[in-house]
C-alpha cells in the first residue's frame, strides 16, 4: 500500500478483494472495488471500470453507506450504466 492506504499493485488489489470477501468486510470491499474502478478508468477501460464501480456501489448500498453509494451511482449514471 502507498501512504494514502491505496493498494499499489493490481495483483495485491485482487488479493485484498478476495480477502475482504472472505471475511465479509463490506467497507473494505467498497474502497477496494472503487479503487480498481478508478485504475481501469484511468487506463481507458470503461467496461471494466463500470464493473468495479458497480461492485463497489452494491456493497455501499448494502452497508447503508449513503455517501459513497450516491457518489458511485452518480459515476455510473455519467457512463450511462445506472438509472
Amino acid at each position: 500500500m502507498d501512504q494514502q492506504g491505496m493498494v499499489t499493485k493490481t495483483a495485491d488489489l485482487n488479493l485484498e478483494i478476495l480477502l475482504s470477501h472472505a471475511i465479509g468486510d463490506a467497507d473494505a470491499l467498497v474502497a477496494l472495488y472503487r479503487q480498481a474502478g478508478h485504475r481501469a478508468e484511468g487506463a481507458g477501460r470503461t467496461d471494466e471500470a463500470c464493473f468495479f464501480f458497480t461492485q463497489a456501489y452494491v456493497y455501499a448500498l448494502e452497508a447503508g453507506d449513503a455517501g459513497r453509494a450516491n457518489a458511485l451511482k452518480a459515476t455510473l449514471i455519467s457512463y450511462g450504466r445506472e438509472q
Partner: peptide, 14 residues
C-alpha cells in the same frame, strides 16, 4: 428494487 447489477451486461446495470 434498488439495484440490478450487471443486468444489461458487464458494468451495465439497466
Amino acid at each position: 428494487l434498488r439495484a440490478t447489477p450487471h443486468v444489461g451486461g458487464v458494468g451495465q446495470n439497466t
